[in-house]
Computed example of a mutant assay.
Amino acid sequence: MKAIGFKESLPITEENSFIEFETEIPMPSEYDLLVKISAISVNPVDYKIRESAAKDTVLETPKVIGWDAVGVVEAVGDKTSKFKVGDEVFYAGDLTKSGSNAEYQLIDERIVGRKPKNLSIAESAAMPLTGLTAYESLFERVKINPEKDKGKTVLFLAGAGGVGSIAIQLAKKIGNLTVIATASRPDSIQWCKDMGADFVVNHHNLKEELEKIGHSQVNYIMDFVDLEGYWETMAEIIKPQGHIVSITASSKPLNLNILKSKSVTFYWELMYTRSMFATDDMERQHQILNHISDLLDDGTLKSTLTTTLKGFTAENLKEAHRMQESGKTIGKTVIQY
């Protein structure tokens, strides 16, 4: 089968930043599904791992990354029970396994959902990783209760990005929250409004912008862009007994003491935790993806796809990474095979 990977962590402008190569089609065992991939999407985690996984070294075998895919089940392992050959599926993968930048992939069925029936292949490929991340942030970490928490305020930092785009929808449509998103360009501001944000504020003057809209403090903050850069500001604008969730990293230790007087709770969210550690509730991602699929099919949620590149080639993968590295993408970029 054809796969695309890298042997060195090179700038995306370099010819060998991605290389096409042939390798064996893997065989499924136990809970594995062998999926023939139809489309993939690219997320910030892709380029971050490409930049670091083979730094100052040259790998003998190309590393295949990629953590969003839609495809058709071609074969199943001997312990599978959720899917059969011919089923259309979508999933966000496992950091510890070979990725989706290939024609075929093995994936544990416990982190796989059924592809939305009413969405195209490209529209579906845009949703797994960001959908899981946003859903887990809201309903697994903070445990938003749509009845008890109705009307409470949530601030999404980087509302127009992949995670922010679906988080806005989930918070508004399912969580019954008052949604505030950050954006600064006219196109990203409009995108956040289209996704359902009640307010869009400029992240460059966050405190002042929140005061202008009458929400100087908020119940929940979800950082999808720069934890370290916003840390002190978040401590100021979070309400007493509020909750902060972050999916980004910090290059230095965070001063948690600044949250103490308000009894603020801080959570990390990493969508890969369940698959990396084979947690007891690993199957929960299968359930969440099926729920998201239903919400997409009935029109409650809409796909955040904005760009589709046609053809599974190294050049298209490079282009998708270039777009992610620019920091200016809106919604999701998909490569359709």
Rank of each mutant, 00 (worst) to 15 (best):
I121S: 08
I189G: 02
C192V: 05
S98Q: 15
L95S: 12
E123R: 09
I237F: 07
V45Y: 03
D56S: 13
G299N: 10
V89Q: 00
Y104E: 00
L305M: 14
I111R: 04
G93D: 01
G86C: 03
R185P: 00
D46L: 04
I166A: 09
W268I: 08
E315G: 08
K117I: 11
S293D: 02
P44H: 05
A134W: 06
G311R: 08
L206G: 00
K173Q: 15
K148V: 14
E236Q: 15
A314V: 11
I288L: 04
S17H: 12
T313L: 08
W231V: 02
A158I: 03
S261H: 13
E211N: 11
P28I: 05
K84S: 14
L177I: 04
N43K: 07
V200A: 03
A53F: 13
D87F: 02
G175H: 06
T307H: 10
Q190W: 02
G113E: 03
I330L: 11
R284T: 08
P253V: 06
E20H: 05
Q190T: 12
K2I: 14
F199H: 10
V201S: 01
G327L: 11
E22M: 13
G299H: 06
A125Q: 09
F139A: 07
I19K: 10
G151I: 02
S165R: 07
S165T: 09
Y31N: 14
T80K: 03
T333Q: 13
G71N: 01
L254Y: 00
G66E: 02
P253D: 05
T304K: 06
I238H: 00
A158V: 05
T307K: 15
V64P: 03
F266C: 06
D87A: 05
A158E: 12
S188E: 11
K318P: 05
Y91P: 01
E315C: 06
R110V: 02
